[in-house]
Every structure is written in C-alpha cells, then in structure tokens.
Design a protein around this nucleic acid. Structure first.
Lengths: 345, 345
DNA sequence: GACGGACATGTTAGCGCTAACAACAGTGGT
DNA sequence: ACCACTGTTGTTAGCGCTAACATGTCCGTC
C-alpha cells in the first residue's frame, strides 16, 4: 500500500529542496535521481529515493516543462468518438502514449471544419504539447492540415491521403476489394455501395476500391448512395433499394460503408419483406461488437482500430526522436458471417 | 519526405518581451493585456494587441502554470469509452471544459482496479491539473476514490453512491422503476432482470430500483442474472431464458441493464423460436443510436449522457470557485418502442 | 498652488526545475 | 611524488511568466 504521508498533510506544496534536505543532498542531486542520470553514487541514489517515497514527492510538471520546453503531452484532435472506431482508436492512442510516458490531451471537434481543427491545434501549441495527432478522415480537415504549420510534429491518423507526410491509415481500398471479391465469388453479378459522407476520405477510398475491384473483375458498375454513417441513413437507402427491386432492378448485394448503416439497411429490407441474405446480401465495415448479433449476423470488414492508435503514437515518437518515418498502413480483414450468400436464382 | 519547415520561420521561440519590444512597452504591460487586467490605457492595449497579432504570439502555458499554480486543465479518468454512454459523456465533458477555457487530459483505465485509478489520479496531480473528474460506476473504483485524497478537487460522475461528496448521477433507480411500471401496466405478472456486472454501481442501483418497484406494486420478485454489458452475455442469458420458458416457467418480460445486452438477448430468443414481444417483452437501457433499428425496435430508457458530462464540469468549476455544491442528478426517460407488449395469453 | 488619490506604467523577485559549470574527491600511470 | 582523468556532488543562472511593489503622471480639491 502506498502510504501517502503520515496522518494528514492535505496539500502543502512539496518541492525538490524538501526532498534534498531530507536526504541531506542538494536539490540538483535529487533532480539527477528523478531523471535517472548516470553519475550518482548508488548509496546517494537510494537515500534520495527513500526520501522521495517517504515524502510522497512528485516533481512539478509545469516547472519541468518550462525549463525543458517539453510537456510530455500529446494533443489529440478527434471527432465522432461516440462511434466505435474512433473511440477504439483513441483508446489505443492513449495507452501507447501512456506507456511511452506521455499524457494525452484531447480536443473533440464537431464539424471537421478547417477553423475548428486549426483552433484546436493552436490551443495545443499554446499548451506546449510535444506533438499533435489528428484523427480524422474528413476532406475538409485534410485541407486544414495542409494549411497549418505548427511548430511541433503533427501526424495524421486514418485519413486517406498521403500528401501530408507521415500518416497512418487502414488500407481502405483493400477492405473494399475484399468485400467485392467475396460477393462476386458468391455469384453476384455486381455489388452496390452505400458509402459514408462524400467529404470523408475513408469513405472515398472505399468507393474507389469498390469501383476498381468491380472494374477489374469485369463486373458492371454498381449503384452508389451516400449515407451519414448512422443507422437512419442506412434505413432510408434500404427503403429505396426495396423499391427498386420491386421495380425489377436486380439488386442482390449491397456493401455498406459501416456496420451501423448496414444495420439500418437490413432492417428496412426486412420491413419491406425482403430477406437477407436470401434476396440481398449485405456487408458492413468496422466489425463493431454488436455486428455478430445483428439479424442476421453481419459479414463485415474488421479494422484494427487500436493498432491504428498505437502506430500513431509510434509515428509521433519517431518524429520526436528525429527519425526518418514513413507512412504506415494497417491491413483490414474480412469476417464472413451470415448476411451474405449466393444471389437468388 | 517530412516537410517540416516550409519557407517561413520554423519555430523561433517567441516570448512576451518580443511583443513588448514591438509595442514599445514593458513585458508586464503585455502580460496585463493578455490577462485582461483593467488598468491599461485603451491606446496601449490596442497597440499591444496589434503587436501580438502581427507576431502571432501565444503565451507559454508552462510558465504561466508554474507561476499561477494552475494549468487550466481538467483531468478525466474514464473507462469503457468504446461504449456509447461513456463516450458521449466524455464529449459533453470536453465541450463544457473547452467553453470554460479548460483543456481536457484523458486517462483511460482498464480494470477499474483501485491501483490503476489511483495511479491515473496521481499522474494528473503531478501534471498539475486543476481538478480531476472520475467517470466510473465501478464499486472498486468508488472505494479507490474514498482512499485517495488528492490536493485538487475531485468530482465523480455517474456513480451511484453519494458518499464521496460531489457527484453527478443519473437516477438509475428511477429509470428502473419506469421500466417496471411500464411492463406491469402492460399486464405482465412480474419482470425479470439481466443486470450489468455486480461491481458496477449503476447496475446495482438499477437492480434496487427494479426490486423495489416490483415489491411496491405487489408483484412477485423476478429472476436476476448478471451480464458484462456486452451482447454476448445477453445472448447467453437469452438461451437460458428460452430453456426455462420451454421448461414451463412463465417468463414474459425481461429488463436488460443496457441496450447491447438486450440485443444479444433478443437475438438468442429469436434463435430459440420465441417472439419479441409476442412471447417475451424486452427493455434496454441507454438508448444507443442503433436501438431503434434492432429487431424489433427496442423499448429503452434514455439517459442524457452529454448532460452528465456538462454537469460534471459545472461541479468542477463550482468547486474551483470555492462555491458550495451539491450532488446533482439527471432524470432518465422511458422510450417505448416495439420490443414490449402485452404478455401472451 | 500644494496635496491626496486614482490611474498608468515600469521594476523587481521569484514560481520549481534543469543545464552548465565549478569544485572536489579518488584513481592509476609515469 | 606528480598529473591527467573519471566520477560525484554542489553552485549558479536562467526558462517565461505573474504578483507585488515602486514610480510616475494627471486629476480635482481646499
């Protein structure tokens, strides 16, 4: 058990020279011990360490930051954290940062507008963070980053583009290809796509991968709809799809840009009397924890979100160490469950 | 190909006296302008402000923190942010903090063990945060907080207990009562409950509310199962429930501790050939965005998570201002959808 | 016209820490 | 013996900022 201090001692500021006095050394020696400098006699070191523990001393981060110019803090600019993917990425990031001895300051922006991102980065700079990680897939946001030129390393995570130098991304195209190949392999003539918002780079990349894979396989191009990542937009498109099928259009496979839209889509299809995968096969993207419990369990593309966060931190550390660093990529994986099958005959 | 320095000045540290020199005043006058002190001549003020803008000066937060003893940062200790509720609460918190001029430092702990929480709080203290918000409902965590005595205000959010002074909570019991009354009103004899983990206070409060409401209505006590918040645990219990029904036990209404477990439960029920709400009515808790798209759309209790976060910040600010502050409560609301109905006859 | 007071500024002294240097030991080689 | 050298400690000087005090300056007032 960590015994704080004897009895009470609510909040008397405890500084380095208090420790020094107790250990009978100079405050500088304490500093050396705290920072793990080599040239301290073992005896002295342990004496100081004991004093630190007995007193419960914690070095003052502000003072240290002032003199070293580094706050050992990483700023994260993110959005949509109430969605599974972004949240999971943030978790990975926080943990990797913590392990590396950094703490994480978070700004959750709303609109992804150039201004809000710029402002968030600016605040982080003023706050003396050592680096900024921007987690977004929004095109506007990408533009914002291009303009910005912060005095600290800035790395981007999970956006499609490479223009900004160091970037970690999931290879979205590859994910989309996996889906198309799976469905075509099942016998579907083509695959239609319900993508995310147009300004999302992730979404755009998936659209590209979908289109290319279709073209390469010699399949006719499929229909493209745009949603907003939420179930309700999937639901709307589901109604539309059902209407077209009734109108005679042969829609047998839909690839949704994320699991939530896939959910809305499947529900709408059921409501309209269609079966999944009997009439229409549906694939999602993300593999949220609920996906195996949808009706039917959803075939989807798994992305390792926490890995994304971890690599983001790696990239940051590399840049802080002045190392050469390149864009880094994480490969997605297809999980086949029961929402896909052969097309109706 | 890291494009760090694009043409302009890379990162020459810009300090207050630079601004002072440019504006032809002393650095202290600049400080006064920056901090909005009253006694500065309007002419001087605008001259300084212009100099600040032209130079793009940003005060150094570390130096300011060192001298004022305040970093204008709030530390948030949280967990399970990949779930909708906690994430949403964090969003509310971050926004409220930002509006109040604070930035948010985040620690995501895993196990809710006493140690990890204590360590997180400790790190925040070393980091000179002005206050710590702990967002958890875990009993162990509550114990951890009781032991801790950080030198900064600590407020708890969303835990059932009041023992720790300032706390913001959703009135979980009230939510549970809403559910029980609704189901009893529909004609069910009693209501069974699939709760969250035993060490969760939220969960415990819901159990109490459920039990009390049942007792007060003179209904026989229902069965109690424990899950882990995730769909898979709901699924397991669903299989169990189906087995009991087949065995003759009259289970007609189950109240799940959250929406995800309700989802798993309903899926298992369907798999076992039972209808929701035809054979069994199911109610969730939280109102995640997917809930209206479950099959059937889920009757659930809506909690205003972001409000929780916002009030957490209010509480923090009040304490920092030395104001008297009390425990604060947010009322939940029942959303009736299609997963509940009259019991089978 | 001398004087107290409100205002506007500048000057000084630290906040708690680390970096640089200075001051000493103790070594071993010659 | 001496000296150059390594290893250990203490001393000093800031980092960039704000609080407290010191210094003006311009009023109105009697």
């Amino acid at each position: 058990m960590s015994t704080d201090t004897t009895g009470s001692a609510p909040a008397r500021p405890l500084v380095m020279s208090d420790v020094a006095a107790r250990a009978g050394v100079s405050h500088q020696t304490v500093s050396r011990v705290v920072n793990g400098h080599p040239n301290v006699a073992p005896v002295t070191r342990s004496r100081v360490q004991r004093a630190i523990e007995e007193l419960g001393y914690r070095p003052n981060a502000a003072a240290r930051a002032l003199v070293t110019g580094s706050s050992r803090t990483i700023g994260l600019v993110t959005m949509n954290v109430n969605q599974y993917g972004p949240a999971q990425t943030m978790i990975g990031l926080e943990q990797a940062a913590r392990v590396a001895g950094y703490s994480l300051s978070v700004a959750i922006v709303e609109g992804a507008g150039v201004e809000s991102i710029a402002e968030a980065v600016d605040r982080f700079v003023a706050q003396s963070v050592d680096a900024v990680v921007v987690h977004t897939a929004d095109l506007e946001a990408v533009a914002a980053l291009g303009v910005l030129d912060p005095p600290v390393p800035l790395v981007a995570v999970q956006m499609g583009g490479e223009e900004l130098g160091p970037t970690v991304t999931v290879v979205q195209e590859a994910g989309a290809r996996l889906v198309v190949d799976h469905l075509l392999g099942l016998g579907h003539t083509t695959v239609h796509h319900l993508s995310g918002p147009e300004h999302s780079m992730e979404s755009r990349r998936r659209v590209e991968g979908w289109r290319d894979a279709l073209a390469e396989a010699g399949a006719p191009p499929g229909e493209l709809w745009h949603g907003d990542w939420w179930p309700s937009s999937g639901h709307e498109v589901g109604i539309e799809v059902a209407a077209r099928i009734r109108g005679g259009q042969p829609i047998t496979a839909v690839f949704a840009g994320n699991d939530q839209m896939a959910l809305g889509l499947m529900v709408a299809l059921h409501e309209q009397g269609l079966s999944v995968p009997g009439d229409v096969s549906v694939v999602g993207f993300d593999d949220v924890p609920e996906a195996p419990y949808f009706s039917p369990p959803l075939t989807t593309v798994q992305q390792d979100f926490s890995e994304l966060g971890r690599r983001g931190v790696q990239l940051v550390l590399a840049r802080l160490a002045g190392q050469h660093c390149e864009a880094d990529q994480v490969q997605p994986r297809l999980l086949v469950r029961r929402s896909t099958g052969a097309p109706p005959r």
